[in-house]
Design a protein around this nucleic acid. Sequence first.
DNA 1: TTGTATCTGTGAAATAAATCACGGATATAT
DNA 2: ATATATCCGTGATTTATTTCACAGATACAA
Lengths: 213, 213
Amino acid sequence: MDLPNNTIDRVCRIFGCLESLEERQVDFVSSKDLAQAIGTTNDTIRKDISLLGVTGYTRKGYSVVSLKKELGQTLKLDKKRKACIVGLGRLGTALLDYERFKQDGFEIVAGFDNSINKLERIKTHIDVFAISEMENIIAQKSIELGIITVPANNAQEVADELIKAGVSGILNFSPEKIVVPKEIIYLDMDFTSALRFIAARFITNKLRKSRVA
Amino acid sequence: MDLPNNTIDRVCRIFGCLESLEERQVDFVSSKDLAQAIGTTNDTIRKDISLLGVTGYTRKGYSVVSLKKELGQTLKLDKKRKACIVGLGRLGTALLDYERFKQDGFEIVAGFDNSINKLERIKTHIDVFAISEMENIIAQKSIELGIITVPANNAQEVADELIKAGVSGILNFSPEKIVVPKEIIYLDMDFTSALRFIAARFITNKLRKSRVA
DNA sequence: TTGTATCTGTGAAATAAATCACGGATATAT
DNA sequence: ATATATCCGTGATTTATTTCACAGATACAA
Ligand SMILES: NC(=O)c1ccc[n+]([C@@H]2O[C@H](COP(=O)([O-])OP(=O)(O)OC[C@H]3O[C@@H](n4cnc5c(N)ncnc54)[C@H](O)[C@@H]3O)[C@@H](O)[C@H]2O)c1
Ligand SMILES: NC(=O)c1ccc[n+]([C@@H]2O[C@H](COP(=O)([O-])OP(=O)(O)OC[C@H]3O[C@@H](n4cnc5c(N)ncnc54)[C@H](O)[C@@H]3O)[C@@H](O)[C@H]2O)c1
């Protein structure tokens, strides 16, 4: 399949909205509501959804349950995926215990750190390991996603190890940019860039649009 | 000024690269290097930079120092801005003490929580306040940016209060989408959406492109 | 039952963005 | 000194994405 990049981004956000609508037992949602929630127009939402081949109901909108199901199936967002966190400092341990990930289909099944000290002190119900065990554990547990929360200086080396160990996707929380082979799906969660994006828009007063993390 | 949205996003990321290049005392950087770092092509980088009116040097690239200075001035990324964090739980306290923000020009000058208990127990050098004081403190300290780290259920109410108190930009870490008036610059840092974006790209094998947070 | 206000679905048109392609410069090597 | 490999700058071109516009549908109100 070949979807616009922006569509993929929006669909992932839409999926999150659907999740919360489903919880609140809302039956139908209009393109307009979704548009407002994720910051775009109803035209765009309808186009996105129609690209995915899902149809709604006149005068009612989309069935929350079945839209979620369809989007989930098409983009395999319904598939459970395993992830690990590398770097168990302040941010890494917060993420380790963030239960929401599991509910959203991403199960954190391992944490890694290179400090034995840290490893001994951490209290969490997730298994934590020395960095030297990474390759084994990732293979053994079939971990697909690596989340990087080590200091900036170590981000590239950790990325290289994760890739060597076999992950397919990387989410990087360090402020340092990482270079990966093109078959690896990689995304930065750079908080400073996000704040800068907001600040820059104070100047260039354009309409809000979704921004791919 | 009226820059493409994507350009703004990329420039913010480029700015981060320049920061680290500057630290490492690198004098020049090519469009190709920057492209690789942020995941795009050299054409696009050159176009972006030329839209900002900055020029480089044949056969050498761009002067790291002066490119950073120019981008900083044009998009006011060099201006120091004050921010506050609302919700001092696991994530909020980690962000509160994240020194890098200050170095990047975003100074966290206040934290807010509605639990007196939490407020008393927190140890940090940043001033923390009860939520009831928010309006006063934000005005008094001229805080422009609000960072939301409260549970999803409370995100909208906190956003409303932040806006009422006068912030111009909001960065939301809760998974719940928030609706804001269009003059407020707003961005989600939705970790689950980011993981989904990666997962979705396992399926739709497109080239990596930058994704606006 | 009849109107009317919504909503979707979708080609067409308009915008926006990315690529291409190549001229002009100039470090660097020989 | 000359050749060569880079690297920028930028119109032109192509591609991608959004927006428009309007034809169905149909819930809902009167
Ligand atoms: N703390 C925040 O709020 C925050 C916010 C945004 C970004 N970040 C970024 O996230 C990353 C982590 O931040 P933090 O505050 O948690 O830092 P931290 O120093 O508290 O934690 C880093 C952890 O990584 C471990 N580590 C270092 N090198 C390693 C390696 N090679 N292999 C495995 N583990 C290694 C350390 O032992 C430590 O436990 C940093 O890059 C930081 O810039 C943090
Ligand atoms: N912990 C993580 O790693 C993580 C990761 C991604 C997203 N998030 C999101 O970030 C948010 C915070 O997560 P957390 O784990 O830190 O939660 P937490 O429960 O540890 O902290 C939430 C804090 O917000 C305060 N609070 C609640 N309602 C408030 C209100 N109306 N006004 C002011 N303060 C209020 C609480 O007292 C508490 O201190 C949540 O929305 C969560 O989904 C967290």
